[in-house]
């Protein structure tokens, strides 16, 4: 059976919530406004208006974030399987871990870069990181690192990652490797979870991994990085194999594209490369891949009830936040209409 009866209630709710997702017309209208004030006024017609505090345009980022947080909170509260949201939210936990580790290394203030969306309180992560790094070495004096009246314990997967990060830094001191390790940890966690729990999410993830791999290759090549470096960032699990991409690494973009034409990503690669030749950046290909990812999510429509609509709702919500943010940033920086438009492709032609 395709349908998972445990999700009946949650699906019913999500079907109703889907209506509040920002539609193409709204994004288009925002895009066609003359300035950020007007774009913001359009945004105030969407579900995000509920999070406005009256501060005006400057408030948009917080509103988007609040909307996304609320979406995750809601889905978590109705999903019979809590790991469904947790696994997606790990991305934000890992982002915070990265920021905390980097900040410690550079000794800079990091608070403003923290995203308050993870499952684990960033302060807890920070305190735990410092405790694990220093506390055990020097003894009890360092417990002053703990915020007053706090209680710290980390989920096992995070405890393990922090430990590995600490070892890596002790051994090589290379933050870049830690970065990679965290990146891959997210993909690995998601892959393991979705293989077990959701073929639907797995299908999405495969495309996502391919997108990261293909664009990673093109970017690194353009930056003149060595093949070995690229090999390190390659993520297993995509449809386009490592050997295939590696064989294309030294070719020109055109030749590489020709080599990838017979993959299922023909549309993204051809369209993206054409634009890449014209203006030398991959943002269009990225948008095409985003569109592709949203397309993969569509299979959810034929599901009466199951985890698929919940996942699709969250992933669409994320895409929506990215799109709205892009418009607002574009408007705030006075980017020309067609540049924003191009980057919004995923949203505008689904």
């Amino acid at each position: 059976m395709y349908n998972d009866i445990r999700y009946a209630y949650a699906t019913g709710r999500i079907r109703s919530l889907q209506k509040d997702l920002v539609d193409e017309t709204t994004v288009r209208r925002m895009l066609e406004t003359p300035d950020e004030e007007a774009a913001f006024a359009v945004m105030m017609e969407t579900s995000y208006a509920a999070y406005a505090t009256g501060a005006g345009v400057s408030d948009y980022e917080r509103m988007l974030e609040a909307g996304l947080i609320e979406a995750y909170r809601l889905v978590r509260s109705i999903s019979p399987d809590g790991t469904l949201t947790d696994i997606l939210l790990r991305r934000y936990d890992l982002h915070n871990v990265r920021i905390i580790i980097k900040a410690e290394h550079i000794g800079a203030d990091y608070k403003h870069l923290i995203v308050p969306m993870g499952r684990v309180d960033p302060d807890t992560i920070a305190a735990a990181w410092h405790l694990r790094r220093e506390g055990w070495e020097e003894g009890s004096e360092s417990s002053h690192i703990l915020p007053p009246a706090s209680q710290i314990s980390l989920p096992r997967w995070l405890e393990r990652l922090l430990y590995r990060a600490a070892l890596m830094i002790d051994n090589s001191g290379d933050l870049y490797l830690v970065d990679l390790m965290l990146d891959k940890a997210w993909f690995r966690g998601l892959k393991a979870w979705s293989k077990e729990n959701s073929h639907y999410l797995y299908a999405w993830l495969v495309v996502r991994i391919d997108a990261v791999n293909i664009m990673g290759m093109l970017r690194l090549r353009a930056g003149g990085w060595s093949r070995e470096r690229w090999r390190e960032i390659f993520i297993e699990g995509g449809r386009v194999s490592r050997s295939k991409l590696e064989s294309l690494y030294d070719l020109t973009p055109e030749q590489a594209a020709a080599g990838l034409i017979d993959t299922v990503y023909r549309r993204e690669i051809e369209g993206g490369l054409e634009d890449y030749r014209k203006c030398g950046e991959l943002s269009y290909m990225e948008a095409l891949f985003e569109a592709r990812l949203l397309e993969v999510l569509r299979a959810e429509r034929y599901i009466t009830f199951g985890s698929q609509p919940l996942l699709a709702y969250l992933l669409r919500k994320e895409a929506e936040v990215r799109a709205l943010r892009m418009v607002m940033i574009g408007k705030l920086n006075g980017l020309p209409h067609d540049i924003i438009h191009k980057r919004l492709r995923a949203f505008l032609y689904r």
Binding site: A8, T11, G12, R13, R15, I78
Partner: peptide, 8 residues
């Protein structure tokens, strides 16, 4: 069950 979700 589905209806209850919608009615919420």
């Amino acid at each position: 069950q589905v209806a209850a979700g919608l009615i919420t």
